[in-house]
């Protein structure tokens, strides 16, 4: 006895409404509020003085060099971190895929970095890269890779190295374990057939294995990209956006503008711009993903 369409309609909506309500409250409501605030000179110190100023906040985004820098730096961070994680993750996955006791142990150990509280990993990174007492400077000099000790967080280039290396340490295992699951699910027949036909090594991987692995690559890249765009705590604790504003990604800029300088209007316009950027980027990525995967099949 299947429920009738009408009955199902009512119950269906009744069951999803509480969840949808909470989600609306935490996504659509904030977005609408920010949209309203973004057209105003809204300072939290004088909240009653929220004068309508049209597009001035948005004009400031386009003209302000620091904000342009922050946007550029955000994209560089996401592309560099996710790109490196994909390459290293693929290499690790290829090494991890053959089933053995040693590989199972390695896969288990690789879970650990993912679980570590991001703020804690940033604090540990800061001490590992401490110029005077850090293990990184000491052991790199000891094995002769490095001459003079480096003050890692004092120059933009080395600060970027620490920021990216932290993300790579924490999230390469995520990519590796997804791709490992993908590789282990690929049936051996196509490879064997191609090997019989004389394909080998690199060509065998690129022409036969990789196309079958593509859905997994797509999911790993999509989820890592989304999470990398949300990065906040690690960079705030590790560099605070510094030195200067060299590692200040957009999340830190929005937070500082709206909640430390209390310029909610200016921060809101940045937040809306960021949201619009993501809503253009993500469907494009999903379109590529939908070709390969049933993640989005509802």
């Amino acid at each position: 006895m299947k429920p009738t369409r009408e009955e199902s309609n009512g119950i269906g909506w009744a069951l999803v409404t509480p969840a949808v309500g909470v989600l609306l409250l935490m996504t659509i409501f904030p977005a609408l509020y920010l949209l309203w605030a973004s057209f105003r000179r809204f300072n939290l110190m004088m909240p009653e003085n929220a004068a309508f100023i049209g597009l001035e906040n948005y004009r400031n985004i386009v003209t302000n060099a620091d904000i342009r820098h922050s946007m550029l730096v955000t994209i560089l961070f996401v592309v560099a971190a996710v790109g490196i994680e994909l390459v290293l993750g693929l290499l690790l996955a290829l090494m991890l895929a053959p089933k053995s006791r040693s590989n199972a142990a390695a896969a288990t150990l690789l879970i650990l970095p993912m679980a570590v509280t991001p703020v804690v990993s940033a604090l540990v990174w800061r001490e590992l890269f401490n110029p005077n007492y850090g293990w990184v400077n000491y052991y790199l000099r000891k094995i002769g890779i490095m001459g003079e000790p480096i003050a890692w967080l004092s120059s933009p280039q080395t600060a970027w190295f620490t920021v990216i290396s932290l993300d790579v340490w924490q999230w390469t295992p995520f990519v590796a374990l997804i791709l490992m699951a993908g590789l282990q699910g690929i049936p051996p027949e196509p490879r064997e057939a191609a090997a019989v036909d004389g394909a080998e090594g690199w060509r065998l991987f690129w022409d036969v294995t990789f196309p079958l692995l593509r859905p997994f690559v797509a999911i790993a890249v999509l989820l890592r990209t989304l999470e990398a765009f949300k990065t906040f705590g690690t960079i705030r604790v590790l560099t605070g956006g510094g030195p200067g504003i060299s590692t200040e990604i957009i999340n830190l800029t929005i937070y500082r503008t709206a909640l430390q300088d209390f310029s909610v209007g200016a921060g809101a316009s940045l937040g809306i711009a960021f949201l619009v950027f993501l809503s253009i980027l993500v469907p494009q990525m999903l379109r590529v993903l939908a070709r390969d995967s049933d993640l989005v099949e509802a």
């Binding site: 909506w13 949808v20 906040f232 999340n251």
Partner: peptide, 28 residues
Amino acid sequence: LRFKGKRFLAMWILSTIMFPPVVAVIPI
């Protein structure tokens, strides 16, 4: 269950994973 708007609803719920927390935290 089968109900009107289910497909859209499922997609919308999934799409909220891209919502940047820093945007939500200010109004909250």
